[in-house]
Design a protein around this nucleic acid. Structure first.
Lengths: 103, 103
DNA sequence: CGAATACATCGAAAAGATTAGACATTTGGA
DNA sequence: TCCAAATGTCTAATCTTTTCGATGTATTCG
């Protein structure tokens, strides 16, 4: 038993914790599933296929970006988002290693 | 772009979606981190190291069990919980495969 | 410059999740 | 049977998140 972990998330888990929190919402999961391989989508495209208003989508995109699940870049008037594949791969590999080593 | 996914979670993702939703809460993350390798903990032990009341812990344990992240078994008066390592391993392997194949 | 486009943010309301006390249930033991 | 222990459930209050109209900001084009 690790009683320490029951009161606060340890430092090494903070970044991953934010990923899980970001992924723990169905709207955000659905946004992520709309991305094809290597694709970049602007906000308008995501709003167009979403059931939510633009401010709501913008809110979810912000959470995903802050959790480093998505990257974004402004090009002219548009803001493009894409999946941070490297970070997600690293994150899930870490979780996988934790499962193997400690559980 | 997969516009279909933007309106509802596809069947193959439903089970994994529930896992992410269950893991998307810091209290539940902390509960999970208290488990040592192969360990079984009863509710009282989890409550003892938690900052929450027993009903609150019970609530979170229920969510984790329904998402199949935890298994449980009643032994006498106690209910023991343990981590569903096989399912979690399978889940994260699936996500990892998805990242490799489709993103 | 002025208009139009794309997006973010603000702010208040609504929806949803969480929490803990009180109560209920199950079990084992005296 | 009666009691205590361990846990689940109910409920209402609270807290947090989500939502969207309105407004603000940056950028491009005429």
């Amino acid at each position: 038993m690790n009683p320490d972990y029951s009161r606060s998330i340890p430092q090494v888990w903070r970044r991953m914790s934010r990923v899980f929190t970001a992924l723990g919402d169905e709207h955000r999961q659905r946004i992520l599933l709309t991305f094809d391989r290597g694709e970049r989508l602007n906000v308008g495209q995501i709003v167009a296929v979403s059931t939510l208003s633009r401010p709501a989508v913008s809110h979810h995109l912000k959470i995903l970006r802050e959790a480093e699940v998505l990257c974004s870049e402004k090009v002219g008037k548009e803001v493009f988002f894409w999946i941070n594949k490297d970070f997600l791969t690293e994150t899930f590999d870490n979780v996988r290693d934790y499962l193997d080593q400690y559980l």
